[in-house]
Structures are given as structure tokens and as C-alpha cells.
């Protein structure tokens, strides 16, 4: 059962890629087949991004690639060469959580937390770009996400609350959000 040849590990053909991940430039040599989701998790240790399926349905791997929400399990790392990537770890910027993070907590928009990073990246992008979206529009925007715990109702409520928080007082909000999320 032990490998008769001793299992000497041989490096596969690799390509150098440079990505800006959460504001920092990263240069690594990767196999061309390496998925971005695995690159983020295994190579960079950014394990907030999760993997929940093998057919691009669930969206729990969603990150921003050049400012757009993208399922990172469906992008090769070499394709993302030169791109700017933002993951859930960067949503809390300079210690200040994004309004959606605070809103998910307040509205109980998460339970097991496994879809949450993808849900947050999708929701944050939507709140930033469509601040006045209706409930139906929010549900359409979340169509690329599978959550098994919440039944979505509280995620929709959280996005609505995040819209309100965003609109209310962006500056004052930042301080409050920091306080709340650290409690």
C-alpha cells in the first residue's frame, strides 16, 4: 500500500502570477489548473472563502475580482493574473466592518456561518451599487447563493438594514459598527 516508488513529489509545470489580494500584491508560482478558491484558501490562508459545491451553484466562494462578485471556484488562478481580489477578510477595512456585516449580525442573517462570507461579498457589492433595491430585487441579487440555514428571510432583512445604515450616516455609522461588532 505504501507507494513503491517512494512517492517523491515532483513539481508540476507552474506559472508565475501576480494578484493584488486585499490591497497587497502577491506573486506566486501556481499550476495552471489551480482554482482561485483553492489559491486563496490553501496558498494564502484566507479561509473565510468557502467551497460548498462542485458545479458553481452555491456561491459560498464569492469574492470580488476587479470589483465584481465572482464565484472563485470557477476562475483559474492564472486567469486572475493581474487582478485585484477582495475577500471577506477585507470587508472589515481598517477595523471598521462593512455595514452588511453589522446588519447580518443584527438581523440574525447567519447561523452556521458557512455561506456567510459569500453572502456578505454578494450583499456588500449590491448595497454599494444598488442602495435602493427592493426586497424582490435583493432576492434576485442573491440568486447565486445557497444558504441552508436561514431561509433567506433574515438575509433580505439584513440587506435592507444595511441599505438604511448606509444611507443614514456613513461616517457616524463606522464608529457604531466598530463598537457593535466588537461587543
Amino acid at each position: 500500500m505504501i507507494c513503491p516508488k517512494g512517492g517523491t513529489f515532483v513539481e508540476e509545470e507552474r506559472h508565475a502570477v501576480t494578484l493584488v489580494v486585499n490591497g497587497r500584491a502577491v506573486t506566486e508560482e501556481v499550476e495552471p489548473r489551480l482554482l482561485l478558491s483553492h489559491f486563496l484558501r490553501d496558498n494564502l490562508g484566507l479561509t473565510g472563502t468557502h467551497v460548498g459545491c462542485d458545479t458553481s451553484q452555491c456561491g459560498v466562494c464569492t469574492v470580488w475580482v476587479d470589483g465584481l462578485p465572482v464565484k472563485s471556484c470557477t476562475v483559474l488562478t492564472v486567469q486572475a493574473d493581474g487582478s485585484e481580489i477582495t475577500t471577506v477578510e477585507e470587508l472589515t477595512h481598517d477595523g471598521v466592518p462593512h455595514v452588511v456585516q453589522q446588519a447580518f449580525q443584527r438581523e440574525h442573517g447567519l447561523q452556521c456561518g458557512f455561506c456567510t462570507p459569500g453572502a456578505l461579498m454578494l450583499s456588500a457589492w449590491h448595497v454599494d451599487h444598488y442602495p435602493g433595491a427592493s426586497d424582490a430585487e435583493i432576492r434576485e441579487a442573491l440568486d447565486g447563493l445557497i444558504c441552508r440555514c436561514t431561509g433567506y428571510e433574515n438575509i433580505v432583512r439584513a440587506v435592507k438594514r444595511a441599505q438604511a445604515l448606509q444611507e443614514e450616516a456613513p461616517a457616524a455609522m463606522a464608529g457604531q459598527a466598530r463598537e457593535e461588532a466588537s461587543s
Partner: peptide, 19 residues
Amino acid sequence: IKRKEDPRLIRGQGRYMDD
């Protein structure tokens, strides 16, 4: 009461098996 689990989970700092 708001959940104690949430501060780590909304930051991608949960620790699941594959992490």
C-alpha cells in the same frame, strides 16, 4: 440576544475542518 458566534463568522474567522 445577538449571537456570540457572529463576530468571528462575519469576518471569515470561523474555523471549519477544512480551514
